[in-house]
Simulated assay, not measured.
Amino acid sequence: MELLIRKVNILLILAVYISKDTIFAQIIEDTGSLELVAILHRHGDRAPLHFYKNDPYKDEKKYWPNGLGQLTNEGKRKLYNLGKVFREEYKTFIPKYSAQAVRVNSSDMDRAHMSAAALLAGMFPPEGNQIWNDQLIWQPIPIHSVPNTQDKILAPLAPCPRFWAEHKKVLSLLSKLETPKDKKMYKYLTKYTGQNITSVCEALSIYDTLLVEERNGFILPQWTKNVYPYRLLEKASICPSTFTWNNIMKRIFGGPMVKEIVHQFQEKSEGRIKDMKLFLYSAHDTTIISLFRALNFKNYLLPDYGASIIFELHKKNNKYYVKMFYAHSAEIVPYEVEIPKCIVPCPLHKLSHITQYVRSVNWDTQCFEQKDD
């Protein structure tokens, strides 16, 4: 275990950056075989979620007038352009928006809702009789969500005592595996941030705040140069994976999203949602990471703003197959990935089989029972 922690495999995405006027590389090899698309994306760029005690930019009214955690103009722009990219990719498959063909779900966070709205504005501009205002080439599209305290899929914040007990154990385990070098960095961070830093998740909090401030053009304090970005990133990248560290946590935190996608693909293959073509999910980095880990990907990663996982259901010779693509940010070309324990493309029945364990979770039972899994 210690070797695993020390040799952190931060996922390096060797991809081609594209301009706002350039579309993704073609990812649909055979449009005629495409049956259904499911896209899970992270929200766009946002303001910091919190400040550290000695943060020179913690004056919220001065530096972050829209509020903590809110989508920035850059985030709106990126997600709008991402919508245009998806439109270019799928315009043959989904010529225009219709309620019968498109379903949009979002976590109940402002930044996720706004990101979905921006993306939809780029992906589905009104056409023909959809145009209701000649001065505004935009149409309202419904975005569905449930309150955070009831969400078990996109931002799993529904009450779950067993999950948080498991998470506490994981953080305790990791703290015992910290090296003298790690502890030295935590001591350094504690000194300069003005608050006690003792864990990978507290390190992530500092890394995230510095990243957001840097991207918004603020000059970071001199002390950050000794730890930011690489040294801090090495520890910070571990934190999101602590939510799916063991099998029971994968079932609780990642299983519901896997279950949702596999279920919709099965429904389509069995003819129960004949008109449906796209499920769009607007969520968070932890949602993407948890889905990856629930599918048994082993890498640590920190998805950038607008990162997307794309699942395509294809039908060939009366059999159904699933393709999976990943883009690390809103401005990176997606590439096809091989689902662990499957082939490319992955037969739907095989995907159903290899995900059976994480999909079979009963949230209430798992969350409130105490037996080992």
Results as ranks from 00 to 15, higher is better:
R231T: 07
Q195M: 15
G254A: 07
L210R: 06
T244G: 03
E213Q: 15
L233D: 00
C201N: 13
Y230W: 00
Y207P: 02
G194W: 04
Q222N: 14
P240I: 11
I238A: 03
G254L: 04
E202F: 07
V258Q: 01
F243I: 05
T209Y: 08
P221S: 12
P221E: 12
F265G: 10
Y192W: 15
F243T: 13
N246L: 01
R251Q: 14
S205G: 09
K225W: 03
P240D: 09
Q195S: 14
G255R: 04
K259W: 01
M257L: 15
T198M: 11
S237N: 10
T198C: 11
I261T: 11
W245S: 06
L220H: 10
Y192Q: 11
I248L: 06
N196I: 08
Q222T: 15
G254D: 01
W245T: 02
A203K: 00
S199Q: 09
E213L: 12
I197L: 07
F265D: 11
E213F: 12
W245Q: 02
S241A: 13
E260P: 01
A236D: 03
F253S: 06
V262L: 08
E213S: 12
A236P: 03
I261R: 04
F253L: 09
Y192T: 10
I248A: 00
K225D: 14
S241K: 07
T209S: 15
T242C: 14
G255E: 02
F243P: 00
Y192R: 06
M257V: 14
N196P: 00
I206R: 01
P256I: 03
C201W: 05
T193Y: 08
F253M: 13
K225Y: 08
V258Y: 00
T209N: 15
Y228P: 11
W245D: 07
V262E: 04
H263C: 10
Q266Y: 04
C239R: 00
K235D: 07
F218G: 09
K259N: 13
W223N: 14
E202V: 08
V227D: 11
G255P: 04
F265H: 08
P256A: 03
V258H: 00
P256S: 06
E234N: 12
I248T: 07
S241Q: 05
T224C: 14
L211M: 13
Y228C: 12
C239W: 02
G194T: 06
T198A: 13
G254E: 01
L233P: 00
I238S: 01
I197G: 05
L220R: 10
E202H: 08
W245I: 04
T224Q: 13
W223C: 15
P256M: 03
